[in-house]
Design a protein around this nucleic acid. Structure first.
Lengths: 228, 228
DNA sequence: ACCTGAACACCGTTCAAGT
DNA sequence: ACCTGAACACCGTTCAAGT
């Protein structure tokens, strides 16, 4: 009879916004942006495509909600220490999350002002306040950090997706990119050629965190200057 | 007979990669990302949808090519002065270009390593070299600037598109965003609430350029530190 | 109130057939 | 070599009809 109760409960698990979002995240993770389809989704949830529209407005709503669920979890896991360290932790957490769920990158930039963005702004902004950045500069500092984090992370995720589409691993992909850049016209592309070698064996994540430190240094300079 | 020659010439203008890209940019500008369709494109070029595939690999190729044509034009227009000023000019030029052609933002992030990105890296990198940033840090500096420029510009463009979709102008949109943020839960979102007012009448472009200065300050700190 | 699934109006892409 | 346009295999979304 335990069995009976179990299967009864299971059948009572009706369609809900949360279960739809959970299934969407799974589909996006396994099949990328193209993997999320109302047909694939309804099949996975053993229902019809129309049923989903009772709980979700449209595909954009669905994508933002899926995005928000991952962002919320990521930010929730951050352990707060010093402001600088916490900002680095937020940055690294989002970088890794976007790396594992590459679809987040593009979903975030097409949902400005929506809840996932607000979560990120908030978590960064609270640390900016604790750094004693004057009120008039807080938005500049938080906005710059957020844009940088999302910008680099999305770019990195896009690299990974491109590599996967070409059936290469990360090393082979960077190798190929490095080779292409090193063969560019020396007259027109001296810089790209000169950094081509460095690209081959660089660590995107370390570079990213170095960029964060760069901005933190800039924020410190700004703070000092505005005090003078 | 002049007339005859003219119309003859005009008919001889057959389909070419360039004319396809030009038409694509026009469609993207007027109808956004959804406006670019092989059917709409072939109609505009008075041909069949299949004809386009003779000159272009697929839609992704088409989007990257359209993107590249705008980026190339933008970078070409930059007048070189001091390294810092030139970097600001590149940044402002790209910000404005992405503002006018909002579809560039998402197209750029989904085409990593492709020619438009290389153009941008190159133009920024050349200035970084002139700032006497040590070789080992050049890629970090150029990469950080690029990510920031593309990140903020895309975000800004996405804001504009969202506003347009809601039939609001920029002021009304920021007004609405500010109101939403000011009504957030004070316990959970103190920062977003506190900057809500500042968002209403801020200048995205000025904020963006302030962010660029922030990063330039960070690069200067990095350079000084690595010399010591 | 919530779900079903056929139907509608689209897509990108292919390909035999033309010139 | 280049173009045509019908056809294929999909989409997101709607909506009468069910429970």
């Amino acid at each position: 009879m335990v069995k009976k109760q179990r299967s009864l409960q299971r059948r009572e698990e009706s369609l809900s916004r949360d279960s739809i979002i959970e299934a969407s995240v799974a589909l996006l993770d396994s099949g990328g942006e193209d993997g999320l389809t109302f047909r694939a989704l309804s099949e996975r949830l053993s229902t019809g495509p129309g049923a989903i529209y009772w709980h979700i407005a449209d595909k954009s709503d669905l994508l933002t909600a899926a995005c928000d669920s991952v962002v919320a979890r990521t930010i929730h896991e951050i352990v707060e220490t010093t402001p600088e360290e916490t900002i680095r932790a937020i940055a690294a957490g989002l970088f890794d999350a976007i790396s594992t769920h590459p679809w987040i990158g593009s979903a975030l930039t097409s949902a400005p002002g929506a809840s996932p963005i607000v979560r990120i702004v908030e978590s960064i902004g609270q640390q900016i306040c604790q750094l004693h950045v004057p009120e008039t500069h807080q938005w500049t500092a938080a906005g710059a950090l957020m844009a940088f984090i999302l910008g680099v992370s999305s770019q990195n995720a896009a690299n990974g997706q491109l590599a996967r589409r070409q059936n290469l691993d990360r090393t082979d992909f960077l190798e190929a990119l490095s080779t292409t850049w090193s063969q560019l016209d020396p007259e027109e592309y001296p810089f790209a050629r000169s950094v081509a070698g460095r690209i081959r064996d660089h660590d995107d994540r370390a570079d990213f965190l170095a960029g964060i430190d760069l901005i933190l240094m800039g924020i410190e300079s700004m703070r000092l200057r505005s005090q003078a």
